[in-house]
């Protein structure tokens, strides 16, 4: 089973990379982009029987740094 994990910066945490991407989009002539935030997408291939608690622990212990990041788990 494929499980998708989305790791994103918490609101209020400055994102220099997102800002650079934003500037680059403007430089390419794209208008109307008011903000860009960059995050990380992680695809896990796991046993169908895995518990939500285990997935949550993987995110909290390693995949995200909860000082600066939120995470969202998407299982099929």
């Amino acid at each position: 089973m494929k499980v998708n994990v989305y790791v994103t910066l918490k609101p209020g945490v400055l994102d220099p990379q997102g800002k650079a991407i934003h500037h680059a989009l403007e430089g390419l002539g794209f208008e109307g982009v008011s903000d860009v935030r960059a995050g990380r997408f992680i695809e896990l291939d796991v046993a169908d029987t895995i518990s939500d608690a285990d997935l949550d622990a993987m995110c909290a212990k390693l995949l995200a740094n909860t000082v600066i990041e939120n995470y969202r788990i998407e299982r099929p």
Binding site: P16, V67, I68
Partner: peptide, 17 residues
């Protein structure tokens, strides 16, 4: 040390990249 939570906070990409 911050990742191990022995110290508070986090170290992010330099503001100027």
């Amino acid at each position: 040390l911050t990742e191990a939570q022995l110290l508070p906070g986090a170290l992010m990409r330099n503001a100027g990249l």
